[in-house]
């Protein structure tokens, strides 16, 4: 089976563009704060909350845009499923690396200017210098959000409004991973009920993240394995 290089490349190209845009926005905000006040904490920590939503839409887009394209180009759903899984599996570490790179760049700049890169949220890592934990946290988070996106995208593609029912399942997967990581959920409504703030042992975190990822992909596959392409009846 061919490696999905073009599917991966197209998604990475967009991810790089969005990362550059995010870095620019964060930099502008930092400059603004520095001009009108005092920079006392990491801005990238807050900016790095955005990629999880991007990850969700990567998952949704894979199903709603690329699945129909694959089938219309004579590829089986099975082949798409494998290509999508490979793409998600490689996209997540790539984006996690971009986020990590953002922390590194911020650290360098803050160090030059003499600001403190203070963290204000609970994480797997306690210092931005713990790059392996920083990368791992975002990797697991992105894997889960992408898998949740594929599930929700599959639900809406197959059942239209009925896809709403997949949202709680997707949220459940995210809660499972983020509860283990111990980060704030930052999910509408859900974070009023659940407030995990204590990271679990590393093995449990990795297990929970991978479990969420695999459950999300497996459920998405059960929805799309024989899904009809939507059409107007004539």
């Amino acid at each position: 089976m061919r490696f999905p290089r073009r599917l991966l490349a197209a998604n990475l190209y967009i991810a790089l563009g969005l990362w550059a845009a995010l870095a620019t926005i964060v930099a502008l905000i930092v400059v603004g704060v520095a001009i009108f006040g005092q920079v006392t904490e990491s801005a990238w920590e807050k900016g790095s909350l955005a990629p999880r939503w991007y990850a969700l839409f990567v998952g949704v887009g894979l199903i709603t845009t690329f699945l129909p394209m694959y089938v219309a180009h004579g590829q089986t759903r099975r082949r798409f499923g494998v290509h999508a899984a490979i793409t998600v599996t490689l996209m997540a570490p790539a984006v996690a690396a971009m986020i990590t790179l953002g922390y590194l760049a911020e650290r360098g700049i803050y160090h030059l200017v003499g600001w403190e890169q203070k963290l204000t949220r609970p994480h797997l890592f306690t210092e931005p210098t713990q790059l392996h934990l920083l990368f791992l946290e975002h990797l697991l988070e992105l894997l889960t959000w992408m898998a949740a996106g594929t599930l929700i995208g599959a639900g809406f593609y197959r059942w239209q409004a009925g896809g709403l029912l997949t949202i709680p399942v997707g949220v459940g997967l995210v809660v499972l991973t983020q509860s283990a990581i111990g980060t704030e959920l930052d999910l509408p409504i859900v974070d009023r009920v659940l407030r995990p703030d204590t990271p679990q042992p590393l093995g449990l975190v990795i297990g929970a993240g991978l479990l969420s990822f695999l459950i999300g992909l497996a459920l998405a596959w059960t929805v799309v394995r024989d899904v009809p392409l939507q059409n107007k009846v004539s």
Partner: peptide, 10 residues
Amino acid sequence: ENADVTRDII
């Protein structure tokens, strides 16, 4: 879901 056939169809 038969790739041998569908690759020849558009």
